[in-house]
Write a protein that binds this DNA or RNA. Structure first.
Lengths: 202, 202
DNA sequence: CCATTATGTCAATGAAGCTGTCTTAATCAG
DNA sequence: CTGATTAAGACAGCTTCATTGACATAATGG
């Protein structure tokens, strides 16, 4: 019983034994919409989509797990790491902007942020233009910790990028962006990291 | 100033205003290791690695969130979805194999699995060869639910794949695999979905 | 027969999220 | 100026999903 039927109905496609169907349409075009209706688009088939789910789950899990040893040492969690990451990415970010990036509630962030501040990883200063705001940034200690955490993940990603090559990396980025909500895509890399989220930037 | 210093150079690189440095080395080769030491590898720089972290976080978050509406309706969580997914992927999987895929503890799985069984989404049958095993599969109802959940994510991924094109998809897969633990990579798509995890397959 | 394995179960705990309500201070529009 | 809105913080209580550790049962296999 070496059934090929990985899924229920879905007949084992001819190329299914090929690891992940690692030969894509090959119809060449680097541009979008490559491959005519009849010619290719094999990469759009159900099995390929399920494989993509697998890839997301495993890659994300393994990547995030790679920093856990350090976090455990310090009695911090992944939520702390995420906050450190985005505060580092956008120094001077306001609390509400951080909430919008993380898409969690104020109360969820409050605990995490409170600990990071109390333990000296994050600094809060009153906003100069809008004094209601508390602008967040990393202390030297916070920057050092974020870097330690980053290094673990960096090693992994550098290796993956190097092994895959520049063209693959570009493809990776295109797909990752495509999977996001449109709204998220806008927040991704604004010219001015912060201005996009603030409605008024005089 | 296109420093080869892949790491901590840090200062705002000239090309940083380009969205994600969307021009990769372009040194062409689809094969790994494209680009000699001096020629490219710009995609390995620190900012690119931090961007990759962003991409992972946002893409994974938005993808998984897309099924949440259905799950909420049924008072199920993401843990249930993951279990349904892998049981659907590997029909007849044993509990210990599922645990190895998910990398959670028996107790964590127990609750989720118990609910899925009790509510008629998952079926358990005693292993024919090894009667200690409880082999898991989806009921018709479970298959239907898994499909509903899958469809939401499929739409998103199909769009992303189509827009990005076949070459990009291939690149995406290469990078995603590269980020995983080696051990994970082995579990990803075994010829026989289940045999790899069982030590004895007579 | 006995050690190991596969599974299940009990109890307690922690991490990280949620809702809802309320306060304070600052901004902004009319 | 006043009143509505906004930014931030705080309190109480809850849910989901994971953890550890100990233990029980049944089946396997040397």
């Amino acid at each position: 019983m070496d059934h090929k039927s990985i899924l229920h109905g879905l007949q084992g496609e001819p190329g299914a034994s090929n690891p992940a169907g690692l030969q894509p349409p090959a119809s060449g075009q680097s541009g979008p919409q490559a491959g005519g209706a009849g010619s290719g688009l094999l990469f759009l088939r159900e099995e390929q989509m399920r494989l993509a789910q697998d890839l997301f789950f495993f890659a994300y899990r393994d990547l995030t797990a790679s920093a856990d040893a350090i976090l455990d040492e310090l009695d911090l969690g992944r939520a702390h790491h995420r906050a450190l990451h985005f505060i580092g990415r956008r120094s001077g970010i306001a609390v509400s902007e951080l909430l919008a990036l993380l898409r969690i509630t104020k109360q969820s962030l409050a605990r995490v942020l409170g600990e990071l501040i109390e333990r000296g990883y994050v600094l809060q200063v009153q906003g100069p233009r809008d004094r209601r705001q508390r602008l967040l940034s990393l202390t030297d200690q916070g920057r050092a910790l974020e870097r330690r955490l980053f290094e673990r993940q960096r090693e992994r990603m550098v290796a993956a990028y190097r092994d895959a090559g520049g063209v693959a990396v570009e493809g990776f980025r295109r797909v990752m962006r495509g999977v996001m909500d449109e709204e998220t895509r806008l927040l991704l890399e604004p010219r001015d990291p912060v201005a996009t989220l603030r409605r008024a930037a005089p």
